[in-house]
């Protein structure tokens, strides 16, 4: 898997204000489809993504499309062809929707037709201040921003967090469509959604990689899913229930998960 991975990180470490947040994350993003980054709340998923983007000080090897990007500043990482939709959406509240999009333009010929086809509202609400959009609309804007440029990878950190069930289903549809064109690294707590769109997955626990492998396989193995994610993954979930599926945050025994993580980590 390593040789063909689009993005691969080895021994990723992050220390912020003397706090060791990541101590050895390995991550491989498949060159096609959706790669899911899973783990309970506080496992280090967001920090891993930020480390890849250069938004937090990091050490370790990060290769993207064959290039060492581990020491590049954020803007240079992004210019390698990565579109990033952060956990808090990162929408500029005081700018209009159109200005938010314009700021994200990097290519000479931004793909507005594709973005407006996916999200017609971004066109009709172009002059509206982004801060007045609903959570779902802001998420559409955050994703739309990543699709303006001919990116080689889209990174989306919990794009369904805090959204109404109907909107979650819409975001899922969009992610599935996007993944047909460009590989996606998806941080997600909604396991039904993961089951629907993800091919491979990496599971983090306490700042380390605890598991890498096929997403459907992991979620089908109830015992492993409970161990790694703190929920049973075995119940078959229909596509329609994506919206209401319980997030993977359930209160599992932290001690069990930690012990397992340490055992499985390299």
């Amino acid at each position: 898997m390593t040789s063909e991975a689009l993005l691969s990180a080895r021994g990723l470490r992050v220390v912020i204000d003397g706090l060791h947040i990541l101590h050895g994350v390995d991550l491989d993003v498949a060159p096609t489809g959706v790669t899911a980054l899973l783990g309970r709340n506080g496992a280090g998923k967001t920090t891993t993504v930020k480390a890849v983007m250069g938004l937090v000080p990091r050490t370790g090897d990060i290769r993207f499309a064959g290039r060492d990007v581990g020491r590049l500043p954020t803007h240079a990482v992004v210019r390698q062809g990565i579109g990033y939709a952060p956990e808090d959406r990162g929408v500029f509240a005081g700018l209009t929707v159109a200005e938010n999009l314009r700021l994200a333009e990097r290519d000479a010929d931004p793909a507005y037709p594709f973005v407006y086809e996916l999200f017609p509202e971004l066109r009709s609400r172009g002059r509206q201040l982004a801060g007045t959009l609903s959570g779902g609309q802001q998420q559409m804007l955050a994703i739309g921003r990543t699709l303006l440029n001919a990116n080689r990878l889209i990174v989306a950190d919990e794009p369904t967090k805090g959204l109404a069930p109907k909107i979650v289903a819409e975001v899922a549809d969009v992610l599935a469509r996007v993944a047909e064109r460009v590989p996606v690294l998806l941080v997600e707590q909604n396991l039904a959604l993961v089951r629907r769109v993800a091919g491979t997955c990496t599971v983090l626990a306490d700042g380390r990689t605890a598991h890498q492998g096929d997403a459907a396989e992991l979620l089908a193995d109830e015992e492993a899913a409970r161990r790694l994610l703190g929920v049973g993954g075995g119940h078959p979930v229909a596509a329609s229930s994506i919206a209401t599926a319980a997030p993977a945050v359930a209160a599992a025994s932290a001690a069990t998960a930690t012990a397992t993580a340490t055992k499985e980590a390299p």
């Binding site: 954020t74 803007h75 990162g90 500029f92 005081g94 700018l95 314009r102 994200a104």
Partner: peptide, 18 residues
């Protein structure tokens, strides 16, 4: 535009490749 956005959230501006 970059300045207005940067006043709000400088890190996010860099995360757009600026």
């Amino acid at each position: 535009l970059i300045v207005r956005a940067g006043v709000e959230d400088r890190a996010m501006v860099t995360a757009l490749g600026v």
